[in-house]
C-alpha cells in the first residue's frame, strides 16, 4: 500500500514513517547537494541566515538537467547521499525532517535522525527522466551561480519513494541484502 505524504513533514509525521514504507510525496521540496550544503552552513556560521527555513522541510539531494522549452524541469534523479553526511546532522538539528536521495548514510546522520525525528527516503537512482514527470514547477531560490547545484524549489506530485532509514534507525540497506545473499 502506498502512503501519501504531503509536505511539510512534521517531526511526528516523520516518526510515523517506517523503513520499507512505499510513499508518494506531494507538495514543495527543495534541491540541495554538495556545494549548496557547504555554502548554507558556512554562511550560517558567519551569521548569514539560511535561504530556506528548514523547519519541517524536505531536501532532495539532486541537481537537475536543464529544462527543454515547455518542460518544468530536465531529468532529476537523486544523487549519492553520503556526500551530504558531513552536513545532514546539522540540517536535521536546524529542523529538516525529510531527506530524499540514494545510497548509504553514516552513523552521525542516523543518530541525528533518531534524536530529532527525521526520515530518509530513497528515490530510484538513474531514473531521472521518469522522476521529472512528477515535477510540476521548478524555480531557483538561492545560489543561482552554482548552476545545477543551486537550491531549486520544486512542486512535486506523487513523487515515488521508499523509506530506507526511519527515525528508529531501521535501515533497509542493512536488513534486505542479507535475505538475498547466497553462499
Amino acid at each position: 500500500m502506498k502512503i501519501s505524504i504531503t509536505t511539510p513533514v512534521t517531526r511526528d509525521k516523520a516518526r510515523s514513517l517506517k523503513a520499507g514504507d512505499i510513499v508518494e510525496i506531494t507538495g514543495v521540496i527543495y534541491t540541495a547537494r554538495d556545494a549548496a550544503h557547504k555554502r548554507m552552513l558556512e554562511n550560517l556560521d558567519k551569521g548569514i541566515p539560511l535561504p530556506v527555513d528548514l523547519t519541517d522541510n524536505t531536501i532532495y539531494f539532486a541537481g537537475p538537467a536543464p529544462a527543454k522549452p515547455g518542460e518544468a524541469i530536465g531529468s532529476v534523479g537523486p544523487t549519492t547521499s553520503y556526500r551530504m553526511d558531513a552536513y545532514s546532522p546539522r540540517t536535521i538539528e536546524l529542523g529538516l525532517t525529510c531527506m530524499i536521495g540514494k545510497g548509504a548514510r553514516n552513523k552521525a546522520v542516523t543518530d541525528a535522525m533518531k534524536k530529532y525525528g527525521a526520515v530518509y527516503i530513497g528515490a530510484v537512482g538513474g531514473a531521472g527522466a521518469l522522476i521529472s514527470e512528477c515535477v510540476k514547477s521548478c524555480e531557483v531560490v538561492a545560489y543561482e551561480d552554482l548552476g545545477s547545484e543551486a537550491i531549486h524549489r520544486l512542486e512535486v506530485e506523487a513523487f515515488p519513494g521508499i523509506v530506507i532509514i526511519d527515525s528508529e534507525g531501521n535501515n533497509l540497506y542493512e536488513t534486505e541484502p542479507p535475505k538475498y545473499a547466497e553462499k
Binding site: 531529468s75 534523479g77 530510484v124 531521472g128
Partner: peptide, 22 residues
Amino acid sequence: ILNQIIKNADLARKKCKPICQD
C-alpha cells in the same frame, strides 16, 4: 525498481531527454 529503470530508459529515448540527470 527494474521496471522503473526500464520505463525511464523508454521515456528518455522517446523524449530525447537524459536517461540520468548526471
